[in-house]
């Protein structure tokens, strides 16, 4: 057990953070002393204290309660964005990698085109088009990550498709759908799980970024990016308004990256060998 811990310390550490944050999100109403948007729960702009561990904001809202409730929103944002990005990206990448006809060229050129714009720019444009809201921000972030996931999926599928087991499936007469779902998909899944866990943190960061710009979560929703944005005006005299949401984002992103790295090492035998 000690050996396991030392070997997978990063992964275990990351996973513990995720579990804690997950539990916080799940039991937010029970953990938070106040509702997220209860104004004048305490004095205005009071620094962290025993009663208000993360301090209070300009409206006297308890920051601890807001951050705790915000964990739910963050988990929600990350999940939905990931499902959209990874789901659509995997389908496009799988189809493009499988196909040997014009479809491959077409899909990949479209992906390349989208990939040549920064993801956040695409998300910004989309939100500008469909209107700012937390839901739209999630969708926009999700869509903006499709090219990335499609590219990753495509590159793995190309490798798997060239292996003899794929031909062996064709020889016994497996159809396109079967080849994609039973042959290629299970074999690209490990790679997708890895990039997915890294992508989760990207999505959270992007959504926080949009909220920070006022294009995502709208006040008074306690999404962490939005909290950062709200705290900005008080940065000098009430730094805790930015410190705690910022720290939360940092921790989640770090945790996902640690877990993602550990998984990519685990799935890549060459990396495992190095140990």
């Amino acid at each position: 057990m000690a050996k396991f811990l030392s070997r997978y310390f990063n992964a275990v550490f990351g996973l513990s953070i995720l579990v804690v944050i997950g539990l916080v999100a799940l039991f937010a109403p029970h953990i938070a002393p106040y509702e997220a948007d209860r104004i004048f729960a305490g004095p205005r702009l009071s620094p962290p204290s025993a009663a208000y561990p993360f301090g209070t904001d300009a409206l006297g809202r308890d920051m601890f309660s807001r951050v705790v409730h915000g964990a739910r929103l963050t988990a929600y944002v990350g999940t939905i964005a990931l499902v959209i990005g990874l789901g659509a990206g995997a389908v496009v990448g799988l189809a493009a990698g499988y196909s040997r006809t014009w479809l491959r060229g077409f899909l990949m050129r479209v992906i390349d085109l989208l990939y040549s714009f920064p993801g956040l720019l695409i998300a910004l444009a989309l939100v500008a088009f469909i209107g700012p809201s937390l839901e739209n921000a999630m969708i926009a972030v999700g869509i903006s990550t499709i090219p990335f996931f499609a590219r990753v999926t495509y590159s793995v599928v190309i490798v798997e498709r060239a292996k003899p087991y794929f031909d062996s499936g064709r020889v016994i007469g497996a159809g396109s759908l079967r080849l994609m779902v039973f042959y290629l998909l299970p074999n690209v899944l490990p790679a997708l799980i890895v990039v997915g866990s890294l992508g989760f943190s990207t999505a959270i960061l992007a959504a926080a970024g949009l909220s920070f710009l006022g294009l995502g979560a709208q006040p008074p929703a306690p999404e962490w990016g939005a909290l950062l944005a709200d705290g900005r005006s008080y940065m000098t005299n009430a730094p805790w308004l930015m410190i705690f949401p910022g720290l939360s984002i940092f921790l989640v992103v770090l945790a996902f990256n640690l877990v993602g790295d550990a998984m990519s090492e685990h799935f890549d035998p060459r990396q495992r060998w190095k140990r």
Binding site: Y165, D167, V171, G175
Partner: peptide, 20 residues
């Protein structure tokens, strides 16, 4: 597809010619 039944193939690298 029905013709596949009649012509089969065995590959060189036995392990990697099976779906992992």
């Amino acid at each position: 597809k029905p013709i596949r039944r009649r012509i089969q193939m065995i590959f060189q690298d036995a392990v990697s010619s099976l779906n992992p």
